[in-house]
Design a protein around this nucleic acid. Structure first.
Lengths: 226, 226
DNA sequence: AATAAACGGTTGCATTTGCAACGAAAGGAA
DNA sequence: TTCCTTTCGTTGCAAATGCAACCGTTTATT
């Protein structure tokens, strides 16, 4: 099956041969589900006992408050996992919603099977925990990075922090942002129109330029100071 | 030595007998250091290769921007760890500062020793990784919880989200906040005086009451809606 | 093609916020 | 005690922000 290729790029399985992955999967047990764009994999407080590995599509971890105001915590792309930190921390219910931002296929692995040494004394099983730990730690660093945006006091500062870090991550200029304006605002936790206004100002001041989802940083010196 | 007691409350060692902890320590190797209040354990970008376990005192993980604006990421109390996610994720340099908010004693464990199976085939060693994973996962959930405050758009919303969650955590009313006003503002990433103004308003509107570090939620219905 | 829905920029306005400055109160040190 | 530092509330003001509304463009659907 073609989705094994995707798994081989996942942090838990990367570097393993295809038949090794197969034997691990049969050892762990798995479920593959399909979701339509716009549907929810988990709602907030949904009971959870499995790790999700995104085979195709895209999902977003989000929080909606009671007024319907949305904030996007993070975005999961094909090959990446979600929920591993929650189940591993012992949470029984999800603290976030998982929303499919595109048609998606998701592979679920029951968490308990990962922790318990398998019946076949599978060599890779011990290794799995170490990989899982590293993945969770990296998510932690990633969340920590998000604080770099959110702790900024003004929209302009949040935008520049985000854009600079995306530029750095993608190592290109211009670079693509995989949010539309609405989503970007929800990600940075600010008002869309206020953000749009600020983007316009920054373009007008020749600090940045953009067209649709392509952004370019023009004046690095100024933008870093401000 | 008395600090073994503290270790037995740490997530890595909890539930273990004292002599077990000793044998593990000798297996892992350790360093104990003392710090004065106000001194830095790590600066941003400090090279890191060890996990810190706080024996006594208190430290704060903070980020200072180039203008000197500070944000407090999290607070570590005696018995808790810091840095484990960073070293485990493979970071060579710290993404945060670690500041002693009180005179502190810190036990450092080299990370590499934790990962490698020990020479004595120590039974607890495998177990250690699992505990470490769980701890990191819990930190992850904790960080996620912090997003609940930060993603709020107004100071009042941030304050109520924070106060409600502290009330829930401490299961008492009134409850104590272990920040002074300055630190609370840095923790919520808002201006101190603006926060003070908002607190005054909320007190005046009889939503909350406070005296020094003791806070009381008065009107649960109103406060949750707003 | 026709229609509908989603997206993105703009703007006026009331509110919120950051900032700076001041002063009172509390706490520590000499 | 006296002096100094820290903490915290207050306030005026300019700037930033959220909000609602509107409109043109793009994209999707029938």
């Amino acid at each position: 099956m073609e989705w094994i290729d995707v798994l081989s790029k996942n942090k838990l399985f990367e570097g393993m041969k295809e038949d090794t992955i197969w034997s691990m999967l049969s050892c762990l047990g798995y479920t593959l589900k399909k979701y339509k764009k716009g549907s929810f994999v988990w709602q907030e407080e949904s009971p959870i006992d499995a790790i999700g590995i995104l085979i195709s599509g895209q999902v977003q971890l989000i929080k909606d408050d009671f007024l319907g105001k949305r904030s996007i915590v993070s975005v999961i792309n094909a090959g990446e996992m979600f929920g591993e930190a929650f189940v591993c921390a012992g949470l029984k219910n999800s603290p976030v919603c998982v929303l499919c931002s595109g048609d998606s296929e998701i592979l679920f692995l029951k968490f308990e099977k990962i922790l318990k040494p398998c019946q076949n004394a599978c060599v890779f099983h011990v290794n799995l925990i170490e990989r899982l730990m590293r993945t969770i730690a990296q998510k932690n660093v990633q969340l920590n990075g998000k604080l770099d945006y959110l702790c900024k006091r003004t929209i302009r500062e949040k935008l520049t922090a985000y854009l600079l870090s995306e530029h750095k991550k993608q190592k290109s200029n211009p670079f693509l942002v995989d949010f539309n304006r609405n989503e970007l605002a929800d990600f940075l936790c600010v008002d869309r129109s206020a953000m749009s206004r600020e983007l316009s100002k920054m373009k007008q001041q020749k600090l940045i330029d953009y067209w649709k989802n392509s952004f370019k940083i023009i004046n690095f010196d100024q933008i870093k100071i401000l």
